[in-house]
Design a protein around this nucleic acid. Structure first.
Lengths: 374, 374
DNA sequence: TTTGTTATGGAAACCGGTGTCATAACGCAA
DNA sequence: TTGCGTTATGACACCGGTTTCCATAACAAA
């Protein structure tokens, strides 16, 4: 110590490193997980100073900081998330909470979020739940509280559950909702941070596409009532039709459940009649593929006898025969954006990240009047 | 305290509860997360004794145990996983590590594992990785070590990566591999705990099914070389054929990559020739659906001109036209079993959990000789 | 040189549990 | 009743970080 005091600033640091060099070497040889105490000892500073360096606290001399960082790098120190979490009273875990939408959707969100989280020190805990169960809210409350989550990502449909949002507010945990952008006429809009997709716009494109092909009698398979996405998609499609003075024909509208079976059923209902539509828009791909089955059962050929459009652009959309024209949502990007919102406090303040939908035109849509063609 | 000593055993407990009753009430009113100290204070025992109760340590008087449990229940105490993990030097997190197999597979495993984990206090952290990346092993090592995982679930194909297994052994973390059961002729079998599926048996059933329908010229689309599942499926199919003295015809075998595109390509290669096979087995559904596309492009009708069998029974299998005959694996059950292995030390000792494959017959397979039918 | 601030670093307590070890309480034979 | 081996319990240090509070060093102004 005395010698340290005697030497000048810049030399001090060097001297310390030199003196400690073999200690460091030996430590590395021991090949044990390093702790903050090891760093402090080898860098000849207090734990607190190391802690300051780790947390980018401003009041550390540059010289000291470098010295500490040098040791950290050399012995490969990584602060223990559990210990840090305990002290912070907050873990380094994000929770992904969902109620069983389709697998492809979940995996894409997951993969996007993880992509953004890579290297940040956060990890993702997945937590499916059942919104119909009695202790649904209690169950989530306990999960979030017990794990002291650093953030929560909510997927539809529970992202629209106000009771759940209230619980999260109460727990004071940062959260982000992934959902379809709200139209103007909706009940009090939710203001919490969200990643929203322009479902409405996508469906408008779909409607315009069908209109451009000359379709007039168009069937519409709605998503389940109560889902924001179902409402938005319907509204968007209607808006698209309205540009040519049309609107969704109540006689040609059937509610589905976002499932293949419900799509099949809806398809049969719409197609098994003399004045059947020449095109059907289904509010997601699953149901669109159900409509395919219905068409097949009735001996109708797509796209000659019937045009079909779906929503989601799942991998299956490109694989069915004929490949399905569908509205595409950049789900992975939405996952990425959701993670971004939780990671960057700046982003959280922006509240809404908006992503666009686009139309992927494949072979399931064709002109309405093929019948009259040679 | 003196009064406590003066009263008799049974009364003591009652007295304590009585005395503390209002303290408990008041605590509950404060509505703050309870800690072990609160429990200790209210139950008038030491932290350590509470800890003993939590961990089912045997040396606690029944009376004391009840008293403590009573307080725990009343104030809703749940030990903090972070603090517990820190002290145990092990978290309560399981890691699910995978390298990008298909979404459906991951979600099913995930959902099965989570189903089994519900209520155990463990949570699941998902961690995709890229086995081609340079720091693949280092990346996983750091993840597992830093999070001090309580267990790791490995999915194919990395479940067969011996270097990775060595890392996990070195870290001394419990892990379980999900994989296809090894045939006898394989290189030194891996003995670590695993959940294995009888892919071979499933493929044998597929072969028998085709043989029973009279097929002789059968195409085979292999999975990627190096994948255990690819090897096993091939072997099983071959065994099935061998029962009638046949075997996979090298001229009718094409290697695929478990992807739609590779299935399409393989299908074209196999079908675009005069002596085309009357049936094709694809080593997974994705590729089978690729074969569908190939058949469509060549104007072949399934199942009249060509029978197709896949493997996995993904949701898509039931939705394509015609619905695909395929080998079904209970993926969710495998996820459940994997979690079980990590949760129950007994189960871990059993080393292998075996699950069966079955054949789901749908409409993509038909008799070989339809050509000669009326 | 002395004084008044402001940066910097350290000791000790704390986050909420567990491990070790000593001691108190208990059951039972002598 | 005494003695002794168990069994039950508690005191205290510890896991690996952070925070509070205070002492000191560094530097500008007087």
């Amino acid at each position: 110590m005395a010698s340290v005091k005697n030497t000048q600033g810049t030399k001090t640091s060097q001297a310390v490193v030199d003196t400690a060099a073999d200690a460091v070497e030996e430590f590395i040889r021991r090949r044990k997980k390093a702790t903050i105490n090891d760093v402090a000892r080898l860098a000849r500073v207090s734990k607190k100073t190391v802690s300051r360096v780790i947390n980018n606290s401003p009041s550390v001399r540059n010289e000291t900081r470098e010295q500490v960082n040098d040791i950290i790098a050399r012995i490969g120190f990584r602060p223990d998330p559990q210990a840090r979490g305990l002290a912070f009273r907050r873990s380094f875990l994000f929770g992904l909470i969902y109620d069983n939408p389709n697998a492809q959707y979940i995996v894409n969100i997951q993969s996007g979020a993880l992509d953004r989280m890579r290297g940040t020190g956060f990890e993702l805990v997945v937590h499916p739940c059942d919104k119909e169960s009695d202790d649904f809210l209690e169950e989530i409350r306990e999960f979030v509280e017990l794990q002291r989550l650093a953030g929560v990502i909510l997927l539809p449909p529970i992202a629209e559950n106000r009771a759940l949002l209230a619980v999260l507010e109460d727990l004071d945990v940062p959260y982000v909702r992934v959902t379809a952008m709200h139209g103007a006429e909706n009940d009090p809009p939710i203001l919490s941070p969200q990643v929203v997709s322009r479902d409405r716009h996508g469906c408008m494109l779909a409607a315009e596409h069908l209109l451009a092909l000359g379709h007039k009698r168009i069937g519409f398979v709605t998503g389940p009532a109560g889902y924001a996405s179902a409402r938005e998609r319907r509204q968007g499609f209607n808006e698209g039709l309205s540009k040519q003075g049309l609107s969704i024909d109540p006689a040609l509208e059937v509610e589905g459940a976002y499932s293949f079976e419900s799509g099949l059923e809806a398809g049969l209902k719409l197609l098994d009649r003399p004045d059947r539509p020449t095109a059907i828009f289904a509010s997601n791909d699953e149901m669109a593929i159900g409509v395919y089955r219905a068409a097949f059962q009735l001996g109708l050929h797509i796209p000659d006898d019937l045009s079909v459009i779906g929503f989601d652009d799942t991998p299956a959309a490109g694989r069915v025969q004929p490949p399905l024209t569908t509205v595409r949502l950049p789900i992975r990007d939405m996952g990425r954006a959701a993670a971004e919102t939780l990671i960057d406090p700046e982003a959280e303040r922006r509240a809404s990240t908006i992503v666009s939908a686009s139309l992927t035109v494949r072979d399931s849509t064709g002109p309405a009047e093929t019948i009259f063609k040679p």
